[in-house]
């Protein structure tokens, strides 16, 4: 381990310790903002594990997140199963589902993948609503637990830490090296012996896994779940924008996008709620035209370092 690694680990531990103290200092509104931010840290960072190196824009987060929330709600409400069991089930379901989507679309060009994920959450929402109304019978789904917002926050913090650790491990592994090569030139990657399809599908499955876990953990926050609430296309876009805003060529990049964006988003939602969509659009254009490497890229440029 190099001195730099040791330093990074220490910084990481300090950050986690500070983050863990948030519920002890804040409560009410600010805790709930922190919780939202923590949710997006886990989602955007795990999203960037896949999309950073491949440049494939996945809009499937909302679908996987919805699978997590919906399965937890159905299992607890209709079948009296435990929260933890349903969280595990939803993670497995989402991972397998991501694998299937990946196998069907990732061997083709990136455009097909974006289009396929674009309407995915909406399609699943339609199907789930239909199943609920016609097959299962329409009943409200209640997620009743003893979890407080602080508990949910700490669980999400744990997930975020797991994402960071996994990300760091992947970056040092053959898989991480393979992804960097794929991101540079997929044809070369194939011809040096990388099974590019398998590598991409594996990483896409990780994002599905984490998004479902986050969806499951968030479910108790709402207590009453319906498909329209959890299968949210908007969530997919927010995850994308925050990761891009932060910058995806560093593991901690999305973090720098999530925190400012969540704060601005909250402020806009309170004061000028009709402006949110417009703001989302402006944020996309800002990134494309002015911040192609995100906040991280900007910082590195200001420090005079080379941007990759």
């Amino acid at each position: 381990m190099t001195p730099e690694d040791t330093r990074n680990i220490l910084i990481g531990i300090v950050c986690v310790a500070i983050a863990a103290c948030v519920p002890l200092v804040f409560n009410g509104y600010w805790l709930s903002v922190a919780l939202t931010a923590m949710m997006y840290i886990a989602l955007s960072t795990s999203w960037a594990l896949f999309s950073g190196p491949t440049h494939y824009i996945s809009l499937a987060s909302g679908a996987f997140f919805g699978i997590g929330g919906y399965l937890v709600a159905t299992g607890m409400s209709d079948y009296n199963l435990s929260f933890w069991l349903m969280m595990a089930v939803s993670a497995v379901v989402a991972t397998v589902f991501a694998g299937l989507i990946g196998m069907a679309t990732l061997r083709l060009s990136g455009v097909y993948f974006v289009i396929f994920t674009l309407g995915l959450a909406e399609m699943i929402r339609n199907m789930v609503s239909w199943l609920q109304n016609n097959v299962l019978g329409s009943r409200g789904l209640y997620v009743l637990t003893d979890f407080t917002e602080a508990h949910i926050y700490w669980m999400l913090l744990t997930v975020s830490v797991a994402v960071f650790i996994l990300g760091a491990l992947i970056a040092r592994s053959r898989l991480g090296f393979a992804m960097r090569i794929i991101g540079n030139d997929e044809t070369v990657a194939r011809h040096v012996g990388i099974n590019t399809a398998r590598a991409k599908v594996l990483l896409f499955m990780t994002t599905g896994f984490f998004a479902a876990i986050v969806g499951a953990i968030i479910a108790p926050r709402y207590s009453y779940i319906e498909p329209n609430l959890v299968f949210s296309p908007e969530l997919s876009f927010l995850v994308v924008i925050m990761a891009l805003l932060g910058g995806m060529h560093r593991l901690w990049g999305p973090l720098l996008g999530v925190i400012p964006f969540t704060l601005i988003w909250e402020a806009i939602s309170i004061w000028i709620p009709n402006f949110t969509t417009l703001f989302l659009g402006l944020a996309f254009l800002t990134i494309v035209y002015f911040l192609p490497n995100g906040v991280v890229g900007l910082l590195e440029k200001l420090r005079g370092g080379a941007t990759p």
Partner: peptide, 18 residues
């Protein structure tokens, strides 16, 4: 076709690793 984002050493390692 070199891998433009990687160093010379990493470019060659790509062959050795995979």
């Amino acid at each position: 076709r070199v891998l433009p984002g990687l160093s010379v050493s990493d470019n060659v390692m790509a062959g050795a690793v995979f």
